[in-house]
Write a protein that binds this DNA or RNA. Sequence first.
DNA 1: GAATACCAAGCAAGCGCTTGCTTGACAAGA
DNA 2: TCTTGTCAAGCAAGCGCTTGCTTGGTATTC
Lengths: 200, 200
Amino acid sequence: MKKPPITLNPTEETNRRAAIIRGAGRLFRDKGYAATTIRDIAGAVGMRSGSPFYHFKTKHDMLQAVVQEGMEAMHLAVENAANAGLPLRAKFEAMVGAHLQALLDEEGRDVAATLLHESRHLDPTALREVVARRDRYELMWRQVLVELKQAGLIHDDSPAIRLFLLGAMNWTTQWYKNDRELSPQQLARQLTAFLLHEAP
Amino acid sequence: MKKPPITLNPTEETNRRAAIIRGAGRLFRDKGYAATTIRDIAGAVGMRSGSPFYHFKTKHDMLQAVVQEGMEAMHLAVENAANAGLPLRAKFEAMVGAHLQALLDEEGRDVAATLLHESRHLDPTALREVVARRDRYELMWRQVLVELKQAGLIHDDSPAIRLFLLGAMNWTTQWYKNDRELSPQQLARQLTAFLLHEAP
DNA sequence: GAATACCAAGCAAGCGCTTGCTTGACAAGA
DNA sequence: TCTTGTCAAGCAAGCGCTTGCTTGGTATTC
């Protein structure tokens, strides 16, 4: 049905749809989905209030697009870290680093935070998709925790511990400032060492 | 200015102001502040849409009251645990248990979750108060982490580790179900043992 | 009869979204 | 080369509805 005249680089600034997703993500992260108006989003990309609806059917669809992008980015980043062929301890730290970087780095932190904090405003169908994908994501963490326990590096790999770990990482969106001295990778090193009870 | 006719038990169901706070807290937790309407809140306590304004000047004031109650409950619970004269390890577990219980138990979980997730909708003045109080709250955690390190039970008591710990606990609001087999106290025991690297 | 607690009704502003129309770029036909 | 037609992209205007909040009135209680 759609046939763009020339298939150019989709990251081009000329791609207005992507610009709307980025602007919406930014606003959803800053003020929340419900408190963000279409006029806010349109203004953020230099449009008038009716124009975003040329690219998206509803405001809800914009949220869905932002969340989708957040899921893909996080899953991909951690999957790459898990499959890089690293030895166990380094793999674990790399996964923590990938999760934190996707969550905190300038590029991508808006969509990731929207995924974490605004998914509840999705309709039931879209929410089910998010939950299913999150379950697949957590499988990777379940697996690495099993390996860590088998190696004797931790003593508990139960679901509660996995959720505590994910919580420790996800909560960074609430306190991490990008102007800090600590990079996401340094944070990952510090958290990993602490969890594995390594002496300094 | 306000002078209640009889200072009776404030948990009495006849205290409509407290009922509004509870109902609002419930809704703020479930749908978020911005997505909750005055009509929702009024309906939750059996009023018409204009009546809550007899007890609160604005919707924002309702949020402020809910957050205030959440802060007092959490601070008091953990403070009691910290000052109960327990030995170090037991004190730490008691503090974790108090924090989790305030966050997860039926009574109080709505206001606590609102404190954690909706404070950003407060105006700058009210927000400063929340931040100041949170800083005093975190002092208690900073202190116990220092003691744990001195005792050799952990190897890192830096700010990042403290924030990771608080994040692990705070994120439970996103996954804990009250119909679970695990109570907040059991969760506290499990998390404490894991962090202190205790063998099973 | 004053104070308390609420209701019925409604107002102004803002909301998501729709509509009819304009604009600039591009390609094809004469 | 000039016209003609098409299309993506967006604008101006506004519709119907919801929002937070106000107002005037009314039971009930002391």
